[in-house]
Simulated assay, not measured.
Amino acid sequence: MQDLELRTSDLPAIPGKRYFTIGEVSELCFVKSHVLRYWEQEFAQLSPVRRGNRRYYRHEDVHLVRQIRSLLYDQRFTIDGARTQLKHNAIKQKKSDYRIVIEQTISELESVVDILT
């Protein structure tokens, strides 16, 4: 039960490696390996690179595992609730990305107008 009381903010820093083994991710996120394998089945977004019989997690996968861990353990979402929340967050992020691109485009167009006038 002690693991459940550990907050995401207490997790160790993620090293600057490109790939992590399931054991390393387990240690970085304080989640057992069999739980990570289960989460791969439940969360389509979590798909580590597989080479042969081994899993290699990318940096974004480790961040996603930490996000899933926070939703399930800290915020007490169910699996379905966490899945829904992740989809909602992805949509929100996409809208934010579009907004940034639109603002940059408007700024560039205003610069062009200033040059032409």
Rank of each mutant, 00 (worst) to 15 (best):
S47N: 10
I91N: 10
H63V: 03
V25Y: 08
I115Q: 07
R54P: 05
T8Y: 08
H63S: 00
D74A: 02
E42P: 05
T105K: 04
I106L: 15
L46W: 07
F43E: 03
C29K: 05
V101P: 00
I68V: 04
Y57L: 01
K87L: 05
L11S: 03
A13Q: 11
E24R: 07
V65F: 01
E108R: 11
T105R: 12
G16V: 06
Y73G: 03
G16A: 08
H63C: 02
R55W: 02
R55Y: 02
E5S: 13
T21H: 06
D80T: 01
R66Y: 12
S96V: 03
I100P: 00
S111N: 14
R18G: 08
R83A: 06
V49N: 00
R69C: 02
F20I: 03
Q85K: 13
L71W: 09
L71A: 02
E110K: 11
A13P: 09
S47V: 05
K95D: 11
V31P: 04
S70D: 12
I22V: 15
I79C: 02
N53M: 12
S111I: 08
S33K: 11
V113P: 12
L116R: 06
H88E: 09
R66S: 01
E110A: 12
E27L: 10
Y56I: 06
I115W: 07
S70E: 14
I79P: 04
L11A: 03
V62T: 01
L116G: 06
L46K: 01
T21R: 01
D61E: 01
P15K: 02
Y57K: 00
H34L: 03
K92A: 05
L36G: 08
R50C: 15
Y98S: 05
R66K: 07
D74F: 03
R69W: 05
F77H: 07
F77P: 05
A82H: 09
Y98M: 05
F30H: 15
T84E: 12
T8Q: 13
Y98H: 09
S26V: 11
S96I: 05
L109M: 14
I14K: 04
S33I: 12
S96A: 10
V62G: 00
P12R: 13
L11M: 14
Y38E: 14
L46F: 06
V49S: 03
D97P: 04
Y38N: 14
Q45L: 07
L72A: 06
T84H: 10
I68G: 00
R51T: 14
S70Y: 08
V35K: 15
G16F: 04
R18C: 12
F20H: 00
R66N: 02
I79T: 06
K32A: 10
Y57D: 00
V49K: 04
Y19R: 01
H34W: 07
H34A: 04
H59Y: 03
Q85A: 12
R50T: 05
S96T: 08
L46T: 02
Y19S: 07
R54C: 13
D61Y: 00
I22G: 03
R55C: 01
R50A: 11
A82E: 04
T78Q: 01
